[in-house]
């Protein structure tokens, strides 16, 4: 039980620290908004193209923001050597990882939920009937993302060129998650049938489970000195 409490305490610490500095919030909110606008310009003025591109645009914006958010997760801890202190806690290292993951996932999910109506309006995408499934898709998709991002961010935290290294390492791994998430979103937006999204959502949950188990099991090796 104390492992779970440690996990929650770490997540709570990160959330409070983020609430005060707002470093990741500002970076990810502005970055994802800029991504949406840039992609809107890049795709031109054809309303039909914009609507069909909307699911992909949403997930591209979320994916890029996810990298920033994960890199930020360790940044404040590394400055004063606080991360080493965290590792001395008498709990499994996986609890530290899951605590970091929880904060990252929460912020990414909320960002995704905010971006959803914004994207729907900017790209004129009909989402009406499928909102509950879309919210679930975003929660599961950002979970898969956050798992890999938080894991690799810990791995690259001490390396040179980590800013460019993190996306290079994590994007090939999250492709199945991204594919399933985009297809699920697409099934609702352009297919207009929420039930079509069901298979993709299940697939997404399966990917999340595999990645969660594997990364939690080997995280302690990553932070071992």
């Amino acid at each position: 039980m104390s492992d779970v409490r440690a996990l929650l305490a770490i997540a709570w610490k990160d959330l409070r620290s983020e609430a005060r500095s707002r470093a990741a919030t500002v970076a990810t909110v502005f970055f994802s908004s800029v991504t949406l606008v840039v992609l809107a310009f890049a795709l031109g003025r054809d309303a039909d193209v914009m609507t069909r591109a909307a699911p992909g645009v949403l997930w591209v914006a979320l994916a890029f923001s996810g990298v920033i958010s994960a890199a930020q997760a360790y940044q404040s801890d590394l400055i004063e050597g606080a991360f080493e202190q965290l590792l001395t806690l008498p709990v499994p290292r996986a609890a530290v990882f899951l605590g970091k993951l929880l904060t990252n996932w929460l912020t990414m999910t909320i960002l995704g939920w905010v971006l959803l109506p914004v994207t729907a309006i900017l790209f004129d995408a009909p989402i009406g009937s499928g909102i509950p499934i879309l919210l679930l898709t975003i929660a599961l998709g950002t979970l898969g993302f956050s798992i890999i991002a938080t894991f690799y961010a810990a791995l690259t935290a001490n390396l040179q060129a980590r800013e460019s290294l993190l996306p290079v390492l994590m994007f090939p791994v999250v492709v199945p998650v991204l594919l399933a998430a985009v297809r699920a979103t697409d099934a609702i937006v352009t297919g207009g049938d929420p039930s079509l999204a069901g298979d993709w959502v299940q697939l997404l949950a399966g990917f999340d489970l595999v990645y969660l188990v594997v990364t939690s099991a080997i995280f302690h090796i990553v932070v071992e000195e």
């Binding site: 290294l165 791994v173 080997i218 990553v222």
Partner: peptide, 22 residues
């Protein structure tokens, strides 16, 4: 790429093993 950035052999081996597991 990651192996090229880590000098210490034990840590290099561990990190590359972890990536290979993923």
């Amino acid at each position: 790429i990651v192996r090229g950035l880590i000098d210490e052999p034990q840590r290099r081996g561990r990190v590359s093993a972890v990536i290979l597991i993923v």
